[in-house]
Simulated assay, not measured.
Amino acid sequence: MPPDAPEFSRPLALGRVGPEGRTETLEASAAEREILARRLGIPGIEALRATLRLSPDPDGAVRLAGRLEASVIQECVVTLDPVPQQVAEEFALRLLPAGREPADGPDDPDEIVAEGDVADLGEVVTEQLALALDPYPRAPEADLPAAARDEATGAFAALAALRGKG
């Protein structure tokens, strides 16, 4: 695999979507999951599967509605022990033909510009998985140190004291 190639590549030409739309089911192999876990900085990805419904928009873009399911292993932020987690996430976005500028309004859907009118659906799924990961995974028995929990002496006590001054 070339060094800049996506770890979980599933290219699809936007023109192949067709007027009736299409459904794609993507599943990462064990080798792809191993490489993706390294990229995402987590100990492991046990399973990664996505179902994507693609439908054409009159303006030449393609609407994508997807459901991502994954079993991942993350590290506990307190103990660094492995924490198995299930990810189930629904998402929607638009795939734009090459040369189109994505809209950036607060109510606009996320848009991804396809390179050469080919969208990499595997990369789309990878990005959605990265967004869905728990940013602070904790093992069930993990407890923060007392100093971190105590508002009077904890990490934010000095900041709280400064808030009262001035």
Rank of each mutant, 00 (worst) to 15 (best):
Q86P: 03
F8K: 05
T25N: 03
A155Y: 07
A157N: 11
D107P: 04
L64K: 10
E24N: 06
A146C: 07
A50Q: 07
G66W: 13
V17P: 06
L95I: 11
A88G: 11
A148M: 14
R33N: 02
L159H: 07
I42Q: 02
E101T: 15
Q128H: 14
D134S: 11
A31Q: 07
L131Q: 11
A50Y: 09
L52M: 08
G166C: 00
P58V: 06
P145D: 13
Q128A: 11
P3T: 04
A98W: 10
R10G: 01
I73E: 13
A70N: 07
G164M: 02
S29F: 00
D104M: 13
A160C: 03
T25S: 12
C76G: 02
T23W: 01
V17F: 07
A114C: 12
A37Y: 02
D150P: 08
Q74E: 03
A158Y: 02
A130P: 08
P145C: 08
E20V: 04
P84C: 09
L162Q: 07
A37C: 08
R10N: 04
G60S: 02
E7L: 01
P82T: 04
G18R: 05
V62L: 06
R138P: 00
A119Q: 11
A161E: 13
V62T: 12
A47R: 14
A65W: 06
L95D: 07
E7N: 02
Q86D: 11
E20K: 08
Q128K: 12
S9E: 04
A65H: 14
A114G: 04
